[in-house]
Nucleic acid binder design. Structure first.
Length: 706
RNA sequence: GGCUAGGUAGCUCAGCUGGUUAGAGCGUGGCACUCAUAAUGCCGAGGUCGUGGGUUCGAGUCCCACCCUAGCCA
């Protein structure tokens, strides 16, 4: 507050425009949104840009399979974005697209500047070419037999069976996954950025290890990782980056090179700048108080350029992107803040297993977006760590902290204030545990927000809330209120605890405001305070928090508790949605839902499934899991333990001794209760309607299904 | 395989540059209270800080090895 405001150009990773947001995107946005709101509350100027990452072969192919143009696909996906962003109170200043005139212009400009800097060269590359689709094939579109262990149907980069890495051209009997055709080798000129050049490496070395505002610009884990890539030797050495793709490709044309396009990862980060340019050109920046032009702003030394990203794209943001900007003569990024992934109940997100949480479903089942914001904030810190969404933990955390501790303070004081003090602020007592705690912690809370240690900010905030609740218990206002009407001493004491509680409540509202903007706004309504910001603590004394005589608004319940049933609904619908996508993957307007079936696979794909007749030797319930049964199955040559989510439809007694089908080569999965070594096959929508498959008479355990 | 990080109470996590009986919240057991959205307060149980070595007067905190988890190897 005393220093000049910082000017922050903030971005979050551009979501790939071939699908809707998932919980991972939302987590990143929530992290950045909290940070951005906090920065605004301490008086800094923030410009937060988002955009769709629209280019690349996957989008082109997906559009083609739906019979629409890539532009139509991208437009359709983009149309859904506001639902999510508004739904979770994500306050971007601008949302744009990499498929835009701004991005074309900037990308081509940066490319030319890199050329002039002597960092671009052309080299012939031999690659597989699909003679049917008439296009070059990226590694993931080529499959064949592993040259090392001879496993069939391995991708063009590494073998999933023996983990051997190789070139796609090493595959035996390769085929295109797009057409099935045998690809031919063909040579084409590609453009490369010379990252391996000494001055380039020297720059990256300096950039990676530099300090920013007296602190390392990168988190230590990120810096270590990037340094490792940068300093690698031999076959680990940093290689030049291939930045071109041949037509057909959905992307930005390379100037002066017919039939060549920029690889999507070249123009994607430039999309940050394109969104910023669009923000300036459309007048939004000016409306947001920024008087400079786009070019002035981008080059200004006082503007900090900060990227929030996930740990999967560290390479691009800490090596390629800074180097691109540097040698194009642009200002380089100041910070890259990296976060981990979000898991659900310890399992990695997986649409096919239905463990992911759909953000839209979350809103549809009526859950409060601020619950999720709070929960995620409580788990976030500045490290590159994965965080886990645990349903029980979620309920406990939200209900206990937000309802039981924070909102409860206003809720338990409001009636007294209305009844005994004409809904006005009584005079503060000399000492107050709550206010002291708030004043003591406010600087640390502020620092924690700035450092993205949101979990720490919340811990400290809850300490303040605990202090007030304990203080209320000492005063016992419910006893004071009994004769306060004709006992001046008790009336005074009642006033003290009301005043202390409400002043602290105001501070707590401020602390939580970056995380809970809508709730804070309601609380501000009751506090009749106007929008709170960190100026509240400028004077640092208790009396300035909330002056005596201040008139409060009408108290209304601020937030409801989480109902466990809502979480059940969330996961049920997630499971149903997952089943639907499993049945009709990316089919768009094709067959009707009832007729929907899975995408076509080959006999070879089917052969990968080791489905066997199995005898259920034993079945038992699992303590602590009301959906699971623990089954011991005989699959011929072995007995396996399998956990099956069929308890809603079967009792252990119904199962013991019967035959069924088991997928025996499913990767074993560790669960809270043990390891599940296979999957029992069943059909049905769920609940009581789950139907286990059975073989006809005569089948014996171990027989393979084929 | 190499590398990067992490493994602290049932659960989720704090523990700064090594220093007295290792902390919090949730959950759990008991008590108190009833103003409040069955909210709140107090007391208690619960950890050989992944394992094994080492350095040190002293290590969850430093070093080595190993095990497990996650991720990266573009």
């Amino acid at each position: 507050m005393t220093s000049r405001p910082r000017h922050l150009f903030v971005t979050t990773a551009l979501p790939y425009a071939n699908g809707p947001f998932h919980i991972g995107h939302i987590m990143e946005y929530i992290q950045a949104d909290i940070w951005v709101r906090f920065q605004r509350m301490v008086g800094n100027k923030v410009h937060w840009m988002g955009a769709d990452d629209a280019h690349g072969a996957p989008i082109m192919l997906k559009a083609e399979s739906e019979g629409i143009t890539p532009e139509q696909l991208v437009t359709r996906i983009a149309a859904d974005r506001p639902k999510y962003l508004e739904g979770f109170h994500i306050a971007f200043d601008n949302w744009h697209s990499t498929h835009s005139p701004e991005n074309t212009q900037l990308t081509q400009r940066i490319f030319r500047e890199l050329q002039e800097a002597g960092l671009v060269y052309v080299k012939a590359v031999e690659q597989f070419f699909d003679p049917v689709k008439n296009m070059f094939l990226a590694d993931r579109y080529v499959k064949g037999e592993c040259p090392n262990c001879h496993a069939k149907d391995q991708y063009g980069d590494t073998c999933e069976v023996c983990s051997k890495a190789y070139e796609p051209t090493d595959l035996i009997n390769p085929y295109s996954t797009l057409s099935g055709a045998t690809p031919v080798r063909r040579t084409s000129d590609h453009y490369f950025v010379k990252l391996s050049e000494p001055r380039c490496k020297q720059f990256m070395r300096e950039w990676l290890n530099a300090e920013q505002n007296g602190k390392p610009r990168l988190q230590p884990a990120v810096r270590n990782k990037a340094n490792e890539w940068l300093e690698g030797e031999g076959d680990q050495a940093l290689t030049d980056k291939d930045i071109s793709r041949d037509a057909p490709y959905f992307g930005i044309p390379i100037p002066g090179a017919t039939g060549k396009y920029f690889y999507v990862w070249f123009d994607a980060p430039i999309g940050y700048l394109a969104s910023l340019k669009n923000y300036f050109d459309s007048g939004k920046a000016r409306a947001n108080g920024e008087e400079r032009s786009f070019d002035e702003f981008l080059a200004a030394p006082d503007v900090e350029q900060i990227h929030f990203i996930g740990k999967d794209i560290i390479y691009f943001h800490t090596l390629l992107w800074p180097a691109m900007l540097k040698f194009a003569g642009e200002k380089v990024p100041d910070n890259v803040y990296v976060h981990g992934f979000i898991t659900v109940s310890g399992a990695k997100m997986s649409k096919s297993r239905g463990t992911g949480i759909s953000p839209l479903r979350y809103l549809d089942v009526g859950m409060n977006p601020e619950w999720l914001r709070y929960y995620i904030a409580a788990k976030l810190n500045a490290n590159v760590e994965d965080i886990d969404f645990n349903p029980e933990d979620f309920i406990a955390r939200v209900n206990s902290d937000l309802v039981g501790k924070y909102v409860n303070i206003a809720s338990r004081m409001a009636p007294f204030i209305a009844k005994f003090f004409d809904n006005r602020m009584p005079p503060l007592p000399a000492g107050s545990r709550g206010i002291s705690a708030a004043l003591e912690h406010q600087a640390a809370i502020r620092a924690a927000f700035d450092e993205r240690e949101f979990g720490k900010a919340i811990r400290l905030t809850m300490e303040v809330a605990d202090a007030v609740n304990a203080e209320i218990d000492v005063y016992k206002p419910w006893i004071l209120s009994k004769d306060a009407a004709n006992n001046p001493d008790n009336l005074k004491k009642l006033g003290e605890i009301c005043a202390s509680s409400m002043a602290t409540f105001k501070a707590l509202t401020l602390f939580l405001k970056p995380i809970l903007p809508a709730l804070a706004e309601q609380a501000e309504g009751y506090l009749n305070s106007g929008p709170l910001d960190w100026n509240l603590f400028e004077r640092g004394d208790a009396a300035s928090l909330l002056p005596a005589g201040h008139h409060f608004g009408t108290f209304k319940p601020l937030i409801t508790r989480v109902d466990p049933k809502q979480l059940d609904a969330l996961f049920e619908s997630a499971n149903e949605a997952a089943k639907k996508t499993a049945e009709a993957p990316a089919s768009g307007p094709g067959p009707t839902p009832q007729a929907a079936s899975a995408a076509e696979i080959t006999v070879d794909d089917f052969a990968k499934l080791d489905i066997r007749i199995a005898k259920i030797v034993a079945a038992e319930t699992v303590d602590g899991a009301d959906k699971l049964l623990k089954l011991t199955v005989d699959i011929g040559d072995a007995q396996r333990t399998v956990f099956a989510g069929i308890r809603s439809a079967y009792t252990p007694e119904q199962l013991a001794g019967r035959l069924t089908l088991v997928l025996a080569n499913l990767k074993p999965r560790k669960m809270k209760f043990g390891t599940s070594e296979g999957m029992v096959l069943a059909a049905g929508p769920g609940g009581k309607d789950i139907f286990l498959l059975s073989p006809d008479a005569g089948a014996t355990p171990g027989m393979k299904v084929k």
